[in-house]
Write a protein that binds this DNA or RNA. Structure first.
Length: 274
DNA sequence: CAATTTACCTGGGTGC
DNA sequence: TGCACCCAGGTAAATT
């Protein structure tokens, strides 16, 4: 479900929970990504004071803890008046007048709690220390991108989805970014020209920024904190458009498998000879 | 050791 | 209506 734009949208919306006293927390006894949900009773009586995003993770900071949330493929965070009677709700955080709950059908998400005595800054949590650059931060420059490209022997598709280089790009936006950059998903990333590198740099920023502006993509599960859907899926050039005409050249969009995942591309626009 | 598979899950769609 | 199979936005761990 969620890539960088969807998580960023939620991060921005989560400001409504800031400084509200946590009255109660309930968790299901199911596993998330094969692991037990941690005991979060120590958060009761506390409040969240800041929300951050790193890669596709949300970090909810309280007085003494960082609560780190990953939505996996089908995770949803919703903020409502009452707890709905729905399946697959795994965490309920109750405030005096509202509830924040986590729903996740496939349970590929994850939840963990980190003590600020051990991790005074969330960036030193092991999950985050090996990650690459945030593409919408000032640290993302053409020099950084070039250094990463020279470092990698992967295909362009694997490269831009690798969070150890650039964070937050998943399977949807990878295809969209490569299409706009006129880069075939199969060619080695270190074989692209200077011009293509500059174009790729611009398109990474443009695609992710536009997706945030559109409120993210809702393919099946992603929703905003209030349940609304995003609209970026209406602007796709290639993702999910197998055998439909390219919006630029009318060549039929192709779907291939790379590393067990689908890549969508235009065989004409994304010609390796470009 | 970097790159590539596998494991972790439910549900919707398709073909028989 | 049922069953078997395939597919789906994620990452960490295991394996090549």
């Amino acid at each position: 479900m969620p890539e960088l734009p969807e998580v960023e949208v939620l991060k921005n919306e989560l400001i409504v929970i800031l400084n509200k006293k946590i009255i109660n927390i309930k968790t299901s006894n199911k596993n998330l990504h094969g692991k037990k949900i941690p005991d979060m009773n120590s958060l009761i009586g506390d409040k969240f004071t800041n929300i951050y995003r790193r890669n596709k993770y949300l970090i909810l900071e309280s007085s003494h803890y960082y609560l780190v949330v990953h939505l996996g493929m089908t995770g949803q965070l919703k903020f409502e008046d009452n707890i709905p009677d729905e399946k697959h709700i795994h965490i309920i955080i109750s405030f005096s007048d509202k509830v924040l709950y986590y729903k996740d059908i496939r349970r590929f998400g994850s939840i963990s709690l980190y003590d600020k005595n051990t991790f005074p800054n969330y960036l030193i949590i092991p999950l985050f220390t090996k990650l690459g650059v945030e593409p919408l931060s000032p640290e993302f420059t053409i020099e950084t991108l070039n250094k990463y490209i020279d470092d990698s022997k992967s295909s362009s598709k694997s490269f831009i989805m690798n969070g150890n280089y650039i964070c937050g790009i998943g399977n949807i936006y990878a295809s969209e970014i490569l299409f706009l950059s006129k880069i075939s998903p199969q060619i080695p990333i270190n074989s692209i020209s200077i011009e293509q590198r500059n174009f790729l740099f611009k398109n990474i920023i443009d695609v992710l920024s536009k997706a945030i502006l559109m409120g993210g993509s809702t393919i099946s599960d992603f929703v905003h904190l209030n349940g609304q859907k995003g609209s970026m899926q209406e602007h796709y050039y290639v993702y999910g458009r197998t055998n439909q005409p390219c919006k630029i050249c009318t060549t039929l969009i192709q779907k291939i498998k790379q590393n067990g995942r689908s890549s969508f591309y235009c065989p004409s626009c994304q010609n390796t000879l470009n």
